[in-house]
C-alpha cells in the first residue's frame, strides 16, 4: 500500500514538472516572438508600426489569395488563363518551401479563376492546391468532400468563394496551431506575389498612367511592409534556430524592396463619416500615389523574376 502511495507521489511530481515545462515553453515562445519583432529596422516617423508594444501579442494580416483576386478584379482586370501557374507543374514541387509557396500561388489562381466563373479551371486548381496541402501534411484542409462540394455548386459563386475561404482558413489555422507559423507565412507570401504577378502582367506599356490597376499595384507598398515584418518575425523558431526557407525568402524579396522604395504612397488623416441608416461608416481621406512608368516596368520585371523563381 505504502509502495503504491509512493508511486502515485512520483507520478504527481512528474506531472507538475511536465506542466511547468509546457508553460515555460509557451512563455519562451512568446518572448522569442517579441524579440524578433524588435529586430526590425525599417521604421519611419509616419509609420503606423512605430508604437508597437513588445508586451502585446502582435498579428500581421496580408491580403489573402481570395482578397488579392478580388482586388485585381475590382480594379478592372480581365481574365487571362495564360498567366496562371500550370497545374502540370504541381508534380515538380517537392520541398517544403516550394510546396508552401505554390499552395499560396495555386490558391490565388483558383480564386482568380473562380471570380471570373471559370468553373472547370477552378476544379483543376483546387486539386493542385490539395496536392500542395497534402505534401505539407496539412490534413483535412481540402478533401474529397471539398472537391465534390465545389463540383456541386459550380453555378453558385457565393458558395465557391465560401469553399475557397474555408479551405484557406483550414490550412492556415492548421499550420499556426501546429507550431508551423513560418510555413503559413510562406503560403501567404506565395499567394500575394502571385496576385502581384497577375496584376502587373495585365498592364500594357501604353496604359500605365491613370490606370486604376497600376494604383492598386502601387498601393501594395503598404502590404509589402507587412510582408517584411512577417518574414522577420518567423526567421527564427521558438528555440532560436534559423529558418533557412525564410532567410532565403528575405533575400529574394529584397529585390522588390529596392523598387517599392521608389514608389511614394502618401495618405492624409482619415475623417469618419457614420451612416445611421446603413450602419456602414465611410472613411474619408486622400491618397497620393507617385509611380513613374519606368518604375512600374522595373517592378513588373522584379515580380516576374521572383515569381519565376517560385514556380520553376
Amino acid at each position: 500500500m505504502q509502495r503504491r502511495h509512493y508511486s502515485m507521489k512520483i507520478i504527481t511530481i512528474l506531472s507538475v514538472i511536465c506542466i511547468l515545462f509546457l508553460t515555460d515553453c509557451a512563455t519562451d515562445k512568446s518572448k522569442q516572438k517579441q524579440k524578433d519583432v524588435a529586430i526590425e529596422d525599417f521604421l519611419s516617423e509616419d509609420d503606423i508600426f512605430d508604437d508597437i508594444s513588445k508586451a502585446k501579442k502582435i498579428f500581421y494580416s496580408l491580403p489573402s489569395p481570395l482578397e488579392t483576386a478580388m482586388l485585381i478584379k475590382s480594379a478592372g482586370a480581365e481574365y487571362d488563363e495564360q498567366l496562371l501557374n500550370p497545374v502540370t507543374n504541381a508534380g515538380n514541387y517537392t520541398s517544403n518551401r516550394s510546396m508552401a509557396l505554390n499552395l499560396g500561388i495555386y490558391t490565388t489562381d483558383l480564386s482568380f479563376a473562380s471570380l471570373f466563373d471559370q468553373t472547370q479551371t477552378s476544379i483543376k486548381y483546387m486539386e493542385a492546391a490539395r496536392k500542395m496541402a497534402e505534401g505539407l501534411d496539412i490534413t483535412d484542409a481540402i478533401d474529397d468532400e471539398t472537391i465534390k462540394r465545389l463540383e456541386d455548386n459550380l453555378d453558385n459563386r457565393d458558395v465557391i468563394m465560401d469553399i475557397i475561404s474555408e479551405t484557406f482558413l483550414n490550412s492556415s489555422s492548421y499550420l499556426k496551431e501546429n507550431d508551423r507559423p513560418a510555413v503559413a507565412t510562406v503560403v501567404l507570401i506565395g499567394g500575394w506575389i502571385e496576385g502581384l504577378y497577375i496584376a502587373t502582367q495585365l498592364v500594357e506599356d501604353n496604359n500605365i498612367q491613370g490606370n486604376k490597376l497600376v494604383d492598386r499595384i502601387a498601393e501594395q507598398k503598404l502590404s509589402f511592409k507587412i510582408v517584411l515584418r512577417m518574414l522577420a518575425e518567423n526567421q527564427k523558431d521558438q528555440t532560436g534556430t534559423e529558418n533557412k526557407d525564410i532567410t532565403e525568402l528575405i533575400a529574394d524579396i529584397n529585390a522588390l524592396k529596392n523598387v517599392f522604395d521608389k514608389i511614394k504612397v502618401e495618405t492624409s488623416e482619415i475623417k469618419v463619416e457614420p451612416d445611421a441608416t446603413t450602419n456602414v461608416a465611410t472613411l474619408r481621406s486622400q491618397t497620393k500615389i507617385t509611380i513613374t512608368p519606368e518604375v512600374f516596368k522595373e517592378l513588373r520585371s522584379s515580380v516576374d523574376n521572383l515569381r519565376t523563381n517560385f514556380v520553376q
Binding site: 502585446k56 475590382s74 507587412i226
Partner: peptide
Amino acid sequence: EEAELYKTFYSGQ
C-alpha cells in the same frame, strides 16, 4: 491582456 493587428485596407472595398 492586449493584442494588436496590422492590415492594409483598400479603397472602394
